[in-house]
Design a protein around this nucleic acid. Structure first.
Lengths: 179, 179
DNA sequence: GCCCGGGTGTCCGAATTCGGACAGCGCCGC
DNA sequence: GCGGCGCTGTCCGAATTCGGACACCCGGGC
């Protein structure tokens, strides 16, 4: 069964949106299109990669809006891969994009196959990053402590016993995790 | 769906085995009978409670064989509940049985309802202990480290990164877990 | 009303872990 | 052949965690 992938495309140009959807859509692949960057971060948890334009306002060319959207996406889900695109761009902008955390940089107009490959690589990186966060020992420990406390209804003595910790040690871990 | 429980009965007396199987068997309940304690620890992972006779050799009355079997079962699976039974027994033997880690002590002949309840309570305790070991932070950490090393094919640097540890810290945890 | 058991939160000298740094190895590209 | 990069394993002064112990609280049983 092919896994479902979900891309988000953000561009103010309806023709570009349409072209991107056509270039990327495929079996087991959902492409959502947004015409403006407002509120795009709400989409972050549900998608695997984002293709984000850098300029939206008429006449804007400096990419500030794209950088802002990138920052908000990364704040919402640091594991999510974002690809930035623009028509007006050079090496300097591309370097800055990657420095700010984009995983790739695409110039318009694009070759469809290259764009599809770029987005596939971005989605794979998102998956790897998300899998990685499932292995983070701090996160794992915090979830285990939460489950033990829930199981024993806040009884720290019994939760510590089941976790294999002493009570003072559990108190310190709870404090470190903000529990 | 009724959960399947599995009991192990160990007794050299075929009539006792038969009576126990009849007393305990029920829907979604498997009772396995062994006529001798040799190799009983191999059954430990697959069962939920054990009813273990204390004497097997002709004329034996001191329960040593039962204590030995108990020790081997507990070494194989510390979470498994073992109920010891005997014909010749008093307070002293019962106390010693529980001190050595048995969860209950049954005198032959038994009341079927009481035996069934004893085994149900033992199985519930096994389940609780096994659930608890799923929350043990040491065990959880060890599994996460194993998964990270497998994911990155033994690359300690990358495994450390994904676990959120420094390399020396991961080396220490690996050593502590015998990995 | 009292006592006991099981819980709470915290302390502090002892014990352990920490991570930047070091030295070395192997592979790959030039 | 050489250099660079990424990996390895280990070290040690600094930092942190440890857990037995303490004092206290509360509820239940007698």
């Amino acid at each position: 069964m092919a896994s479902n992938l979900s891309y988000l495309i953000v561009d103010d140009d309806a023709d570009v949106l349409k072209a991107a959807v056509m270039a990327l859509a495929g079996p087991a692949l959902v492409v959502e299109a947004l015409a403006a960057p407002e509120g795009l971060e709400a989409r972050a948890p549900a998608c695997d990669a984002v293709l984000l334009d850098m300029n939206f306002a008429a006449g804007a060319r400096d990419g500030a809006e794209g950088f802002d959207g990138l920052a908000r996406l990364r704040a919402a889900d640091p594991a999510l891969s974002v690809v930035l695109m623009t028509t007006y761009g050079g090496v300097k902008l591309a370097v800055e994009a990657l420095k700010q955390g984009a995983v790739d940089f695409v110039l318009k107009p694009w070759r469809n196959e290259a764009l599809a490959e770029t987005m596939r690589a971005a989605a794979a990186l998102t998956a790897e990053r998300r899998a990685g966060s499932q292995l983070n020992l701090d996160a794992i420990e915090r979830r285990a402590i939460e489950r033990a406390l829930a199981l024993y209804e806040g009884n720290v003595s019994r939760a510590a016993a089941v976790l294999g910790l002493t009570r003072p040690a559990l108190y310190r871990r709870m404090e470190r995790h903000g529990l």
